[in-house]
């Protein structure tokens, strides 16, 4: 199963320790600080790297690949030092860049075979793995045509295929869903999830679409302006909050007043027919139902709400942006 033979710096034992460690990582470009004192550990599994445009995600990935030296601080990937062991890292790590970087004049098969061989796979193995991988990402007859004629979705699949063709232990995916329509995005997310579950390859994936990361990530790292904002498991980040979202067909103000009178904490949610109630106890749920029945209004929704990732993105601004 291991075509790389002795080339691997690390055995195939189940992963222990973190996949990625960064310590006080700083990187400046002239006057611009892209990363500032970033200290973070990323576990195995699917890690979502969240940040606005220009937050430093791509810089971090390039440092992790050993392509960009940090200005100060250090980073390790799978126990290998990024500043000195770049080649060893790139042997066991796959990378899907964000840019539209595929050469238009070669076919997907040709390109992926070539890149597989550059990762040390013997020719025959590279061909076989390429065929498997391209089939896995859903490219069939098209794979012998020049990439220049591919759609955005097909190009993204080729980029994903080349990142996993050499059976890496970790893949770094930079904005894999960029430019895809909803169906394409769903399929790409499904593929990424299967990379983690079916092939036991750890994944670090960046995106600015938070909903996606919420769906597929086990762990989330949020950076902004090169500074770590948060590093947490997705379950913790989106745990049930003590809030119930209520939507009614009519009579919002009346029902809210009724609940306030019963001692519940009611807050405006911004919607015309919705509000939220602090879940102080089971009695709150009863009060909502009874109140709706008494007023004769239709109860459309009564839902315990999870924190959405957009809320952890910049928690201190939530209050300021609430509409009243």
């Amino acid at each position: 199963m291991d075509p790389l033979g002795g080339g691997r710096a690390i055995g195939d034992a189940p992963p222990t320790g973190p996949a990625v460690v960064a310590e006080s990582l700083t990187r400046t470009f002239g006057p611009v600080t892209a990363l500032s004192q970033l200290t973070v550990e990323m576990p195995h599994g699917v890690v979502g790297l969240v940040g606005a445009n220009g937050a430093g995600k791509s810089t971090l990935i390039k440092i992790l690949l050993g392509l960009l030296p940090p200005t100060s601080g250090r980073a390790q990937v799978l126990g290998l030092d990024c500043a000195t062991e770049g080649l060893a890292i790139r042997q066991v790590v796959g990378y899907m860049p964000e840019s539209d970087c595929l050469p238009p004049d070669v076919s997907a098969t040709e390109l992926v075979v070539h890149l597989a061989r550059m990762s040390g796979l013997p020719s025959a193995v590279a061909r076989e793995r390429t065929a498997d991988t391209l089939r896995h990402v859903g490219l069939y007859e098209e794979r012998y045509r020049p990439i220049g004629g591919y759609s955005t979705g097909m190009k993204q699949r080729v980029k994903l295929a080349q990142a996993i063709v050499h059976d890496p232990r970790l893949v770094l995916l930079d904005e894999p869903t960029n430019g895809l329509d909803p169906a394409g995005r769903d399929e790409m997310l499904g593929l990424i999830q299967r990379i983690s579950t079916d092939f036991a390859i750890s994944v670090v994936v960046t995106s600015h679409l938070l909903g996606e990361l919420e769906r597929i990530s086990d762990h989330l790292v949020v950076i902004e302006d090169g500074v770590l904002q948060r590093s947490t498991s997705t379950a913790d980040a989106t745990q049930l909050s003590g809030v119930v979202l209520v939507e009614v067909t009519d009579g919002v103000a009346e029902l809210a007043a009724l609940l306030r009178a019963a001692g519940a904490q009611v807050a405006d949610d911004g919607g015309a027919h919705t509000f939220t109630v602090e879940l102080a106890g089971e009695w709150v749920l009863d009060a909502i139902q009874d109140g709706a029945a008494d007023l004769g209004v239709g109860l459309v929704r009564m839902q315990r709400r999870r924190h959405h990732l957009t809320e952890i993105f910049r928690p201190e601004q939530e209050g300021a942006h609430a509409r009243h």
Binding site: E23, T28, T33, G66, T71, G73, A83, T84, L87
Partner: peptide, 24 residues
């Protein structure tokens, strides 16, 4: 920003800089 850690002090070995020449 205070520089800590080894940073640029350690460089990769020179032979590495030509790794992959054949396929390229």
């Amino acid at each position: 920003a205070v520089a800590i850690g080894t940073g640029r002090a350690v460089r990769p070995p020179v032979a590495d800089s030509l790794a992959g020449l054949g396929p390229m």
